[in-house]
């Protein structure tokens, strides 16, 4: 379990990093927290010719929280975002999700943006970005582009990132007033990738009826599966909504696969159970109540 040979680059400015990446082309890989890339290298599942370690590039670790949402820089660690009071105030879902990501030691090094680029369908942060309709800002020597979540996740462990590009930051848009969120998952062990998990966002109107309700499901498809269940919630007050029935609609939309940890049927079942729990608690939070 030693990596194959590679050239190591440690650029100290963004411009230098983009130059190195441009020259490396498809043989280049960005190293951020290394919590996913290093194991891949050690198991020789990835053999990039060039590793571009961006950890010394200044200015990439920002966490900017405002009424519009939260912008997270490429070097903002999971733990920093999890603990950021501004981020938590603007979007409680960030903290709810990050507490489910791995273990504290991994969160201390792993980055939110790295997790998005890594695009593991079992990962929490891609689901959060997809649920909120956020975006990822990509930079290359030729310029920058902002890719919406719906286009960013293209398959299991595949994103829209092109050779030569660095993901600069990700933007998680805030929700309207009277919104609430929740994220529940079942993992085999504490901190493991989820067997199934559901993030929910519910927005109520002034009469406390459901104005919008969405879920994003992990581990049940090649990319986070976002389902808009607003219409299934019915016109009545949210407190009276039949969340189990709504969750049934979610279940029907996912197409999980079985593996050594769980059958496809169990994953589908769990997605329903977790969707009901997450939606109910998101609706409660939207009313300003604790679950």
């Amino acid at each position: 379990m030693k990596p194959p040979p590679f050239d190591y680059h440690g650029p100290v400015t963004l411009g230098e990093a983009l130059d190195v990446l441009a020259e490396a082309g498809p043989g280049g890989k960005v190293l951020a927290g290394g919590q996913s890339l290093i194991p891949l290298l050690n198991m020789r599942l990835a053999a990039p010719a060039h590793i571009v370690d961006v950890n010394r590039v200044p200015g990439l670790d920002g966490i900017e929280a405002g009424p519009e949402g939260v912008r997270v820089g490429a070097l903002a660690r999971h733990a920093a975002v999890e603990r950021s009071p501004g981020a938590a105030a603007a979007l409680p879902l960030l903290r709810q999700a990050l507490r489910l990501v791995a273990h504290p030691v991994i969160r201390n090094r792993g980055t939110v943006v790295g997790s998005l680029v890594h695009a593991d369908p079992a990962a929490e942060m891609p689901a959060v970005l997809a649920l909120l309709g956020g975006s990822v800002r990509l930079a290359s020597r030729d310029g920058e582009r902002e890719v919406p979540a719906a286009e960013f996740f293209t398959g299991p462990m595949e994103s829209a990132l092109r050779p030569g590009e660095l993901a600069l930051s990700a933007f998680f848009p805030a929700l309207p007033p009277r919104s609430g969120t929740a994220f529940y998952e079942v993992a085999r062990r504490h901190g493991d990738y989820a067997v199934a998990g559901v993030a929910a966002a519910v927005t109520l109107d002034e009469d406390l009826r459901v104005a919008a309700a969405r879920v994003a499901c992990v581990s049940v498809g090649p990319v986070p599966v976002v389902v808009d269940v607003t219409s299934a919630c019915g016109p009545g007050p949210a407190a009276a909504a039949g969340w189990e029935a709504v969750a049934g609609a979610v279940q029907d939309r996912v197409d999980p696969e079985g593996d050594i940890h769980a059958t496809a049927e169990y994953r589908r079942h769990l997605t329903g159970v977790l969707a009901a729990r997450a939606l109910r608690d998101a609706a409660l939070a939207a009313r300003g109540e604790e679950s």
Binding site: V186, R188, V195, H261, A262, T263, E265, Y266, H269
Partner: peptide, 11 residues
């Protein structure tokens, strides 16, 4: 026995 196994047994 895993949760998935238990679920299958319940079914």
């Amino acid at each position: 026995i895993s949760p998935s196994d238990l679920y299958a047994l319940r079914q």
